[in-house]
Amino acid sequence: MRRLSRDDVTKAIPGADDVTIAEVIGTGATVDELAEAQAWLANDEPMINDLRPLAQGRVREIVDILSELEEDGEADADAGPAPNPG
């Protein structure tokens, strides 16, 4: 199984910053594990309904990293535009 490269992560997570990319690669995950983590984020209810066990190990680590990334993005969007100092 092939481990993730920077290119793999940037293709799968457009707009990810360098820290997030390094965190995802640092899990030691494979391309398949990244895809599984993204599936959990997009479709957790159907996966649970299919009686799949909850994400574990490296997949769980990626789910946590990407969940935090989504939360940060939502917080930035909620803040609205910066006030114009001029």
Rank of each mutant, 00 (worst) to 15 (best):
A35F: 03
A79D: 13
R52P: 00
A42W: 03
P85D: 12
A12L: 07
R52Q: 14
G73W: 04
G57F: 11
P83M: 07
A42L: 09
R58G: 01
R58M: 09
A22R: 08
L51W: 12
A22H: 03
G57T: 12
A16I: 13
R60L: 15
I21M: 03
E71N: 11
R6A: 08
Q56G: 11
S5I: 02
I65T: 00
D64F: 08
S67Q: 12
E61T: 03
P14Y: 12
E71T: 04
G15S: 12
N49E: 13
L54K: 01
E36Y: 04
M1Q: 08
R58H: 14
P85M: 10
P83V: 05
I25K: 04
D32R: 14
Q38M: 14
D76T: 06
D72Y: 08
I21H: 01
L69D: 13
I65Y: 03
W40M: 04
P14W: 08
E68P: 00
V24S: 02
D44E: 09
A82R: 15
D78E: 15
T20A: 05
A77G: 08
D7E: 14
D32A: 12
G86R: 12
A42G: 15
A39K: 08
L54C: 02
T10I: 11
A82I: 13
R52K: 11
A35D: 11
L69C: 05
D78Q: 13
P81N: 07
E36V: 10
L51D: 15
D17W: 02
R60T: 01
R58S: 09
D8L: 04
E33F: 05
